[in-house]
Design a protein around this nucleic acid. Sequence first.
DNA 1: CTTTAGCACTCTCGCACGAAGAGTGCTAAA
DNA 2: TTTAGCACTCTTCGTGCGAGAGTGCTAAAG
Lengths: 350, 350
Amino acid sequence: MELSPRKKKILRAVIEDYILNAEPVGSKMLTERRGMNLSPATIRNEMSGLEAMGYLEQPHTSAGRVPSPKGYRLYVDELMEEHRLTLAEVRTINASLHLRIQELDRLVLEATQFLSSLTQYTAYTLTPSTSDVRLIRFELFLAGADAFVVVVVTDAQAVKNKVARTNPLPTEEDLQRLTAALNRHLVGPLLREIGEELLKKARRDAGPAAGPAGVYMATVAEFLDEIREALDRRDVVLTGQSHILGHPEYRDILKARRLLEYLSDRREMTRLSMPESSAPVRFVIGPENVAEQLHDTSVVMASYHIGENLHGLIGVVGPTRMDYAKLASRMAYFAERLGRALSGDKDIDE
Amino acid sequence: MELSPRKKKILRAVIEDYILNAEPVGSKMLTERRGMNLSPATIRNEMSGLEAMGYLEQPHTSAGRVPSPKGYRLYVDELMEEHRLTLAEVRTINASLHLRIQELDRLVLEATQFLSSLTQYTAYTLTPSTSDVRLIRFELFLAGADAFVVVVVTDAQAVKNKVARTNPLPTEEDLQRLTAALNRHLVGPLLREIGEELLKKARRDAGPAAGPAGVYMATVAEFLDEIREALDRRDVVLTGQSHILGHPEYRDILKARRLLEYLSDRREMTRLSMPESSAPVRFVIGPENVAEQLHDTSVVMASYHIGENLHGLIGVVGPTRMDYAKLASRMAYFAERLGRALSGDKDIDE
DNA sequence: CTTTAGCACTCTCGCACGAAGAGTGCTAAA
DNA sequence: TTTAGCACTCTTCGTGCGAGAGTGCTAAAG
């Protein structure tokens, strides 16, 4: 059953008022604060209809109405008009990402912090999973009197390194030979496909440069395992936890605490963002969340893309009464910009 | 004026009871719960003496007594007996640090998380400042069709890298020559001392391998700046914020929020830990904190040492009513172990 | 001189009560 | 179909009061 245009208008007004004031909204408020040309009585009728259909709820008999999750869902799907970003916002977003930050981790951290302060909600980032990676270059060399360094570069142009200490230490010459052998055999296939066989081949090729009993080579193999693990892992960065306490729905400490605890569980956060989708911005409203701890919490997420294949996720978490209209546009824009920044795109401001 | 042994005993009992129960402790409680062989009246006399001397406070006329910051100070300095760690605790601490984690950042993060769950307080880590570093090795090589990689190793055997894109791209031969020149001129002096002059020398030495108008060399110089900045910066990792909400003194949301906000300010956190000291564990109690936001919060810190020169800091934050006796031993032990783990010491369990 | 028992006093906390206020649903009129 | 009026419901907030806990003081006991 489709809602009448008037019902929609009223629903929207209720939701937007509630988002703003966090208090049940009554019929009188609507006629006064929002320019409704109807009497309170009419509004009451419509509202009770909306309640019967499940879009509104009443905390108790003689209070105003509050949007239900179903109401919010309709709102984000059909009713809301996305807030345009102000020029100032566009500028600060761009500026925040403009830092010539080399380290990826740090850029992600700062971006997440910025997102939180921009939206005034708790924000998080889920880094891309990069398991389909290929290695494009090995380089091994001595460093100091007791160690050598293994460096590999991936096709996404991430550089990984390890400081290794073996006994005995390889000579510079050993390392040159080993480097050559590694580049011959392990460059090309997916990292995931580098197994016993390829390693054996490389080792044989390197000959004595693989070290006594192959120790040097073994160190490299170990390193590859570590890289694999590190790349598989999707890091979660969470910031702005204090914003949670700013919302009246978390006046109850216990509730706030439970939420914070949930959010700081990395595994849960990864799961939270599972159902990837192609929509630029995704809303998960209250009980739509799989996790019970989030049943009166909403999550707004947007994907960012690094290059062709990698995609990560940014999100903000807050009470179901979130400013969806404002978030939609800001998250979309921010995600897009973050992706560019992480892709190493120099021309980030325009 | 020195306190009588009996006063000390009473003060200690009051503090320990208050730490446990978070409620003003009265004379009766003491005779009952703690085995005091004195009547409540006597205790009352002593307590009013302790109050006059500033070791105890009364929230209001007819409530029990609460330790004052001065009382806590005496407690940590003289009165408390450090809790011994249980064998189980020793084991879990060692196990938590035993992970063969390559990346330093990640080990620090996980250690901080662990510290928080061990102590049930909000925990943080301040990484060492490493500004007195020397470079011991440069290595430059091509990576892919459009980029080259600059790798440097510091004398603390940290490896830093940068992916650089220049137009035109250097040849492998250029890079070899440039690498050699860099190793000749920039290895040896403190990173901090590498300025215009040395760079110019290296550039001249590299000749055409420094790139047209010295672009390749300029990229390296830029990279060195970045490294300098990264090494100067002391990272702050904060975890377990939800624990703050577990203490009754933060039933007031606004207070909790302000504290959380303060703690998430990296600059403040760095400042917080400024007055380094040689004591294994340091207590900063309530108003002893410079920052006003922490005036009813205590901080317990311990330094960890990586190798000879680097020292970082771990800390926990909570209400002034913290379990100092328990923390003292745990923090000391944990810091010592963390230092070892970060120094790359393999034999971490014994 | 120190310790203890007794007692009056003070202050907080929790609870019940009632008035005020906001909002509703229903009915009847426009 | 819309609106005005009205009785009703439910929360919120302020007030007052009793219970409970703890104190300080005084005077007696050790």
